[in-house]
Write a protein that binds this DNA or RNA. Structure first.
Length: 235
DNA sequence: AACTCGCACAACCGCTATCTT
DNA sequence: AAAGATAGCGGTTGTGCGAGT
């Protein structure tokens, strides 16, 4: 079947709205299906990427906090370029974002180190401890970044632990790292992959995936969709 | 004001893993 | 068990923007 030509490149606001709507409706699965029913001239793959990296409601925007930077360093030294895995430990950050961050900073670091390659290792040059170093480097030196004790939600890693009376408790970075250790242990012990609950389940609580058959019954219009006029959001 | 450079971000591509039939 | 479909991951490239010259 001759595929209608797919759009590429930057997403329009209209496309974002459309995609968000359909994801809310159907959930963040079956991207090809979503791409089709939404009428977007995008591949399912493209839709998924857009959602995961940009439209997802839980996403954090803006610069990496020092704590996040440290966490990325630490996790990267442990896991290498396992960006998605690293991203799981950084709430609100995507693998793409972390990957981009790492790339940018590694490049900068490499550039800096080339400049003074004769000088000895400075403690802060732990950036060089990339995946190419197979060691676990337990003594990566992370000097405290913040001088004052201020710690906002994101600085603490963003995990809300529980509402403890009036004070909202957050995970410290130590706790996060402890968590990482534990998850690693359990992984190796059980030899299973950790299953992360999709945050979308919370975002789209009404999303109940049906079998194909059920879907076709419920939304027959989508299954004979002839790329109708996408006037859904218009007016 | 014009130009260059570097950074941050978005998006695509190819490949692999997992699921479904 | 095999084949096809789908989802996800990591690498790479393209683009916009602000800072510096």
């Amino acid at each position: 079947m001759a595929q209608a030509e797919m759009r590429k490149g930057p997403w329009m606001e209209q496309e974002d709205l459309q995609l968000a709507f359909y994801v809310n409706l159907f959930g963040d699965r079956r991207w090809d299906f979503l791409a089709k029913v939404s009428g977007l001239r995008r591949t399912g793959k493209s839709c998924r990427l857009r959602w995961v990296n940009y439209l997802h409601p839980g996403l954090k925007r803006g610069k990496m906090t020092p704590q996040e930077e440290r966490l990325i360093l630490e996790l990267h030294s442990k896991w290498g370029n396992r960006w998605s895995r690293i991203a799981m430990k950084l709430p609100g950050r995507t693998d793409n974002e972390i990957k981009n961050y790492w790339r940018t900073h590694m490049r900068k670091k490499a550039h800096d180190e080339r400049k003074n390659n004769t000088s000895c290792f400075s403690p802060s040059s732990s950036f060089s401890n990339s995946s190419s170093f197979s060691s676990n480097s337990p003594d990566v030196d992370f000097t405290p970044i913040k001088k004052n004790n201020e710690r906002n939600f994101y600085d603490a890693g963003g995990f809300e632990k529980k509402n403890d009376g009036d004070k909202m408790k957050v995970y410290s970075m130590d706790e996060i790292w402890k968590d990482i250790e534990l998850s690693q242990e359990s992984e190796t012990m059980n030899n299973i992959k950790p299953i992360m609950p999709s945050p979308i389940c919370n975002y789209c609580p009404n999303t109940l995936w049906m079998s194909n058959e059920e879907e076709t019954k419920m939304f027959p219009q989508f299954y004979c969709l002839d790329n109708q006029d996408n006037t859904f959001f218009a007016g």
